[in-house]
Design a binder for these strands. Structure first.
Ligand code: SF4
Ligand code: SF4
Lengths: 162, 162
DNA sequence: TTATATATGGATATGTTATATCCGTATTAT
DNA sequence: ATAATACGGATATAACATATCCATATATAA
């Protein structure tokens, strides 16, 4: 099992958008350029973020994307679920009902202990992701990003925002 | 993202093996029959369980599989990792190093806050799975499995074990 | 008004992983 | 010896992730 690669992209992109000056927006093309990502595919993910209301999209020249709410109000879980959906990772195929020991469907009133165990673990995963906000990510980044990269990023910002 | 379907199969199969009388073994073919699963593919998963030392395999007539240690000493995490591997679900592709703001590799000393967040959540998931043993699963099953299914399973056991 | 820049959604192509089968070999009980 | 079983490698198929392309809608600015 592998998590959608777009999650990494999305968190990075939102981190960049968080530094946008008031009233500005960044188009998909420029975000793709910043991380050297495939433009059209990234655009798909940005559309997911837009549908999930994490970013606001603005069409037309000068348009693009910007955060739809402040970084402290966006959790990593929000981002992950925007990209990867909310379908549980463990999907029971009800094999207990099959084979020689199966009994009619109405005998199975609720999900079994196996499914509940798997789902409880997923909840622990989600809870942990919900505990971290985009603001937290930015904070860590501010402390740990190499100085040179910060400068280069600022340069880039200056060039793409007019 | 979807978890390997074999996880569900494996937990069920180990649950059945837990009820084997001392000294007996169940071959892949019969396990597949019990759950109406594709025999050869299930065999692959059983081989994974064997490599992970969760079951002991016995070749030849009368052979098959049985638990390699008592049910309380097998966790759901053991089973999940035997089937799905131990590779982290979140795999960083280091996009921070790419594009116009990237700096030389030696500037990045440790995984960033994003990766650490994702991995911490995975650890919470694993911890939760490690908290549940196969014995716990059996216990829940004993309480919740429909009576009719228990009887049919016992019938089946009687027929396949000589 | 026109041209341009952007997002959106659908269609499609490609690559990768999961699912499933098959076969030859090794091992062991009878 | 024969039959039953596990094992590993090879292969086929299906599902999904990744990536591209295009037609359309919308907004900006000249
Ligand atoms: S016993 Fe649980 S995991 Fe197994 S088929 Fe039923 S609901 Fe699914
Ligand atoms: S910043 Fe973190 S998630 Fe992003 S590429 Fe680097 S290590 Fe990976």
């Amino acid at each position: 099992m592998k998590l959608n690669e777009g999650i990494e992209w999305a968190i990075h992109c939102l981190s960049v958008l968080a530094y946008l000056p008031e009233g500005k927006a960044l188009p998909a093309k420029k975000l793709a350029g910043f991380f050297d990502l495939p433009e059209h595919y990234l655009a798909k993910h940005l559309q997911s973020l837009s549908q999930a209301k994490l970013v606001k999209s603005i069409k037309g020249p000068g348009g693009g994307y910007r955060l739809s709410r402040p970084a402290p109000d966006i959790t990593v879980l929000d981002i992950v679920q925007a990209i990867d959906g909310k379908t549980p990772h463990f999907q029971c195929t009800e094999i207990r009902r099959r084979g020689p020991s199966g009994v009619p469907d109405e005998c199975y009133q609720k999900p079994c202990g196996i499914a509940r165990t798997m789902w409880r673990a997923e909840k622990a995963w989600r809870d942990e992701l919900a505990r971290v906000s985009l603001q937290d990510i930015l904070q860590i980044g501010a402390e740990e990003t190499p100085q040179l990269q910060i400068e280069k990023s600022l340069d880039w910002f200056g060039q793409v925002i007019q």
